[in-house]
Simulated assay, not measured.
Amino acid sequence: MDNWRKSSYSGPDDGNACVEIATTPTRTAVRDSKDPTRAVLTFPTAAFAAFLRSLEPAGLPPLAL
């Protein structure tokens, strides 16, 4: 996967202490931005989307993949 991106909630003061995700139509990959050469976790896209929905506080816009 080569389309890695950090959370839109990650700011310049975070100093790379963030996770990055990359997506395909069927999989979502997650890696540690501090060491991107280490292990990558992959999930079915639908399962990762359900996980993100479970984190949404009521009344806020949905998190995007």
Rank of each mutant, 00 (worst) to 15 (best):
M1P: 05
M1W: 00
D2P: 02
D2A: 09
N3H: 05
W4M: 02
W4L: 03
R5Y: 07
R5E: 09
R5Q: 12
K6C: 01
K6V: 06
S7W: 01
S7P: 05
S7R: 01
S8N: 03
S8M: 05
S8D: 04
S10P: 00
S10K: 01
S10H: 01
S10Y: 00
S10V: 14
G11F: 01
G11N: 09
P12T: 02
D13E: 11
D13A: 11
D14H: 09
G15Q: 02
C18K: 01
V19P: 01
V19R: 04
V19N: 04
E20A: 07
E20C: 03
E20N: 09
I21W: 05
A22D: 03
A22K: 09
A22W: 05
A22F: 02
T24W: 12
P25W: 11
P25S: 15
P25Y: 14
P25T: 13
T26E: 15
T26V: 15
R27K: 13
R27C: 07
T28G: 06
A29Y: 15
R31L: 11
S33G: 07
S33R: 10
S33K: 11
S33M: 07
K34R: 15
K34L: 13
K34T: 05
K34Y: 12
D35T: 12
D35Q: 13
P36C: 13
P36I: 05
P36R: 14
R38G: 15
R38D: 14
A39R: 13
A39W: 04
V40E: 13
L41F: 10
F43D: 07
F43A: 09
P44K: 08
T45K: 15
T45H: 13
A46V: 04
A46F: 00
A47H: 10
F48A: 05
F48Y: 15
A49I: 14
A49C: 02
A49G: 02
A49E: 11
A50R: 08
A50M: 02
F51S: 10
F51I: 11
F51P: 03
R53P: 01
S54T: 02
L55N: 03
L55T: 09
E56Q: 15
E56K: 11
A58V: 15
A58D: 10
G59M: 08
G59A: 09
G59E: 12
L60F: 09
L60A: 15
P61A: 11
P61M: 07
P61W: 01
P61Y: 03
P61Q: 04
P62I: 06
P62N: 06
P62E: 12
L63V: 08
A64L: 12
A64V: 06
A64G: 14
L65S: 14
L65R: 11
L65D: 13
